[in-house]
Design a protein around this nucleic acid. Structure first.
Length: 595
RNA sequence: GCGUUCAUAGCUCAACGGAUAGAGCGCAGCCCUGCGAAGGCUGAAAUCGAGGUUCGAUUCCUCGUGGACGCACCA
């Protein structure tokens, strides 16, 4: 990667006595192209240490670079300049851009990919059983999937895990409601029939009703707890109802994942760790929670407090976390530790990434620290990606009050809007009804995904129908449209082979703008992965598309002035299409050839 | 009360301590007898407040203001 090569030659020039590692050498793309393609401020930093004027230091670095026989000086670099207070600016040769262009069209979907051999676990999605898939779970699902795609692209062996909430007291509530309202007094056979006919909406309504009715009848709380206890004790009836609700939910989630083009390698829910052996013998259900409690006791990391078993942290770095409640029941802290232990043992990853909402930040700090104290993990990297929440203009959505915005509703609405535009558009005239349906799906869903992924994961997202369904401006459809436009031109040109234009060819400003962006794709991917921020890719690809559209509106491709120009513009068009397609693919967005 | 985090244009968001703070929506105007107008161009419009560190601060530190999230028997 060109960026790394530049860092290397600067590193060689500044000498090892300065405390800057190669990776710390700051290189930016100046906004103003007069300042070059890359710019570094190292001279400004070193000037302080040396007590010399910054420009003088910059000049020294510059001549050191120019006086060393680097290959890229011949092949790629036009000039190196010292500018302003002491920036060193690098300008690229046309040959460099042409070389990158060639790689884009030759390497296609491999352009920018990496060869890491590390293993990384990514936990994402993790919806709750017996609730419909809300807009809130969209974030974890698609951010997690994008991270998965990014790391896979960089060569990592990724293990994607869905960790659904299929255990705990909320399930007691569902059981209580189901039994009391639908199953009471029925024979086993009748019950089975009723359970088979249930939908996710039924379950969700029961859950919401539970909380409204609870206000009038506080005894329900006790009833729910009793049902959960039955479940824990392997009561056959409780188990049958629970299994049924779980099955309904998982089937529903599969449908959504399919719609979203999300692929998850393993679904291992909370019950896997919580339920005792008898419940899930086929899944090796030994008492994983008990083992954790035992281990923490033996290592003297846990102590009793007010009747509960807690894990205090050294120097009160974090508030204590609870392993066992006063009634002896484990908590989700215990569960996540068991989870960590299980994953370390089964996969031996170098990194574990967990993607959840921000509200769990403290919890995962506690889990990670406790896991280190207990040596469940060693040098492995533990990362919690905490995404902000979807909220309405009024505040947070509450499942309990039934305010959830159903993802499916959003998706159908988006698909419908896309369909309307497709019907009006002339560009899709030749498409069959089936193809139009397919395109509407890609565009509608792509828009919803892009709306989410283009924002920094950490921030909250204000849910706005108009924005999420927007098909114009900085949106998924804008990118898809630009891609389809490029493809259309290629089709009209007969998809002829490209000849790499010779370096005498002059590029217009608009063409250079695209070239100066497109080659950054590999470093953008790397940065997005390192920061666990898919929005870095989104911002980048939007800029590329903008640059292309600007070019498109100022120059002709098919009717270019001469043959050589036409060739180079076709090449540029093909490369742009490739960059857009690769970027969208990392974001999990489909790029239709026509729309 | 304590902790974490955020505050950028009317709205929704970018910006790795760097050069003139970028976009989108919306608003005002312009551009298809030429490759896809789901497009392009032009314009108005912003760093919460007060200090500090720095050659240079939206970015780092302190204080204040306002919001979000969390702080042991929900996950």
């Amino acid at each position: 990667m060109i960026r790394e090569e530049l860092q290397q030659i600067i590193f060689n020039a500044i000498g090892k006595e300065f405390k800057l590692s190669k990776e710390e050498i700051f290189l930016e793309h100046p906004e103003n192209s007069d300042h070059g393609d890359y710019s570094t401020n190292v001279a400004l930093i070193l000037a302080k240490q040396l007590g010399k004027p910054p420009r003088e230091v910059a000049e020294e670095i510059r001549s050191h670079i120019l006086n060393t026989k680097y290959k890229i000086l011949d092949t790629s670099i036009e000039k190196v300049e010292v500018a302003g207070p002491g920036f060193i600016n690098f300008f690229f040769k046309k040959e460099f851009f042409l070389g990158e262009l060639r790689q884009m069209v030759e390497q296609k979907e491999k352009y920018g990919s990496g060869k890491s051999k590390e293993k990384i676990i990514i936990e994402y999605s993790s919806p709750n059983i017996a609730k419909s898939f809300g807009i809130g779970h969209l974030r974890s699902t698609i951010i997690g999937q994008a991270i998965y795609n990014l790391y896979t692209f960089l060569g990592y062996k990724c293990i994607g895990i869905n960790y659904p909430g299929d255990w705990g007291t909320p399930h007691g509530k569902i059981l209580y409601q189901l039994y009391g309202k639908k199953l009471k007094g029925k024979t086993a056979k009748e019950q089975k029939k009723i359970l088979n006919g249930l939908t996710i909406e039924n379950l969700e309504k029961l859950y919401v009703d539970f909380h409204t009715e609870l206000a009038l009848n506080p005894a329900m709380e006790e009833g729910a707890r009793a049902w959960f206890k039955k479940l824990e004790q392997n009561n056959a009836e409780a188990r049958a109802i629970w299994e049924a609700t779980r099955k309904i939910s998982l089937r529903e989630f599969e449908r959504i994942y399919d719609l979203l083009n999300v692929k998850i390698d393993y679904t291992i829910g909370e019950s896997f760790f919580s339920a005792k052996g008898e419940i899930s013998p086929s899944r090796g259900g030994e008492d994983k929670m008990g083992q954790i409690v035992k281990e923490f006791k033996e290592k003297k990391l846990a102590r009793e407090s007010e009747g509960a078993l807690i894990v205090p942290f050294p120097n009160d770095e974090l508030p204590p976390a609870m392993l066992l409640k006063t009634d002896g029941v484990t908590t989700y802290f215990t569960r996540d530790l068991a989870n960590m232990k299980y994953r370390m043992k089964r996969w031996k990853p170098s990194t574990i990434v967990i993607e959840t909402g921000v509200e769990q930040t403290l919890h995962f700090k506690q889990v990670f620290l406790a896991a280190r104290l207990a040596e469940i993990v060693d040098n492995e990297k533990l990362v919690h990606i905490a995404h902000g929440l979807y909220r309405s203009k009024e505040g947070k959505f509450s499942t309990r009050k039934g305010q959830t915005i159903h993802l499916e509703e959003v998706l159908s609405e988006a698909i419908e809007r896309a369909r309307t535009i497709i019907e009006e558009s002339e560009t899709t005239r030749g498409l069959s009804d089936k193809e139009k349906t397919e395109v509407a799906r890609s565009v509608g869903i792509g828009g919803v995904k892009y709306n989410d992924l283009s924002q920094h994961p950490a921030g909250d997202i204000v849910f706005d129908w108009e924005k999420i369904l927007n098909l114009k401006g900085n949106s998924g459809p804008y990118l898809q449209y630009t891609y389809a436009r490029c493809k259309s031109i290629a089709r009209k040109a007969g998809n002829s082979k490209f000849q790499i234009p010779n370096s005498k060819l002059q590029f217009s400003k608009e063409e250079l703008d695209i070239l100066r962006l497109a080659y950054r794709f590999p470093e953008v991917v790397k940065e997005a992965a390192e920061k666990f921020s898919p929005n870095v890719v989104a911002t980048f690809v939007f800029e590329v598309a903008q640059a292309y559209n600007n070019f498109y509106n100022t120059h002709r491709v098919l009717q270019a002035e001469d043959k050589a120009t036409k060739q180079s513009r076709l090449l540029l068009t093909a490369a742009t299409a490739q960059i857009i397609k690769n970027s969208l693919s990392l974001l999990g967005i489909v790029a239709p050839e026509r729309m």
